[in-house]
């Protein structure tokens, strides 16, 4: 297969093809490496990931640690946090060091973002493959199920479910959102599977006696997954923004959990007088979501030669 491609390339360019034989992903990787935006977003995400996994690297305080109500809402000494010493980010409404709180606020949204996307992606791969590959009644059932969940507005559904289970932590919340989140990805996956199901190589594999599972896993999945994977990457950012919104509506995470969404929600009534309470978590949240979006965009562009 790649040999023919090489011969073809030689025939077209008249010279030897440089570099290894190009699969979709290695081609995309070569394209990605050249992009500044890709490296910027990877750097930001690595920093945020470290913050979420090892907050001790960034601050010596725990979450809600050494808070003093007398210090509540003490403003940062200077607008430039790098110029000031001591507590350059000021104190939050409970009198905790705001920088430490922001650092600890990274973990919850990151977990929710990845777990929700993970649940939705797994469900989408399984259900989308089954419904696209087998069609018929299985497809009908799965498609109608997606239709039903599609009809339920996401904010509304999450509001009702999360109100019904008031004592939810990060994991319960991820589970609830994950269950609501799969329809879009499943539709995407199903469409992808449909588009490659009748390809020649699938027919060939079937004639060679490959079973359904093998065809789905070895032939259809690798050729159908790319757009779904890109969507999932973008989606982590979307979920993080969504988690913050639910915190804001008061049905998301609750104190003593620390999260950017909760900080933003607390800042709402105060930000006329204490704008820093809003600005710092907003910058980190936006940078994280933005990085996921840019990363997804870059990968999509790299995977789709038409857009180059």
């Amino acid at each position: 297969m790649s040999e023919t491609a090489d011969t073809l390339a030689v025939a077209q360019t008249g010279s030897e093809v440089v570099g290894a034989s190009a699969s979709l992903w290695s081609d995309a990787w070569r394209e990605l490496r050249r992009r500044v935006m890709f490296w910027v977003s990877v750097a930001i995400l690595l920093a945020m990931g470290l913050m979420a996994a090892f907050p001790a690297l960034f601050t010596d305080r725990g979450s809600n640690d050494r808070c003093d109500v007398k210090l509540a809402k003490h403003r940062p000494p200077s607008w430039n946090p790098f110029a000031a010493r001591g507590h350059p980010f000021g104190y939050d409404t409970h009198g905790c060091d705001y920088w430490a709180q922001i650092v600890h606020g990274a973990r919850a949204p990151m977990i929710v973002g990845f777990v929700v996307t993970g649940i939705a992606l797994s469900l989408a791969i399984v259900l989308g493959s089954l419904s696209g590959y087998f069609g018929r009644w299985l497809d009908t059932i799965i498609s109608r199920l997606t239709d039903i969940l599609f009809g339920l507005p996401l904010v509304l559904g999450a509001l009702v479910i999360l109100t019904a289970f008031p004592d939810h932590g990060v994991w319960t919340m991820s589970l609830v959102l994950g269950v609501l989140w799969w329809p879009t990805m499943t539709r995407l996956m199903r469409g992808q599977v449909l588009s490659v199901r009748d390809a020649d190589y699938v027919q060939a594999a079937r004639m060679l006696g490959a079973g359904d599972v093998r065809i789905m896993a070895r032939h259809i999945l690798p050729n159908a997954i790319a757009p779904v994977f890109v969507y999932a990457m973008l989606n982590v950012g979307v979920v993080i923004g969504y988690e913050a919104t639910l915190d804001y509506l008061g049905v998301g995470l609750q104190y003593p959990t620390v999260s950017w969404g909760l900080q933003l929600s607390q800042a709402q009534e105060l930000f006329v007088d204490y704008p820093y309470l809003l600005i710092y978590p907003a910058i980190l949240l936006t940078a994280t979501v933005l990085s996921f979006l840019l990363l997804g965009d870059a990968v999509r562009d790299a995977l789709d030669p038409k857009l180059r």
Partner: peptide, 22 residues
């Protein structure tokens, strides 16, 4: 547009309310 997608809508909402309204 990427920026607008990345900022949560409620932050956009109450910031705009403060700046353009108040």
């Amino acid at each position: 547009t990427t920026f607008v997608i990345a900022v949560p809508q409620f932050v956009l909402g109450y910031s705009a309310q403060l700046v353009f309204g108040l």
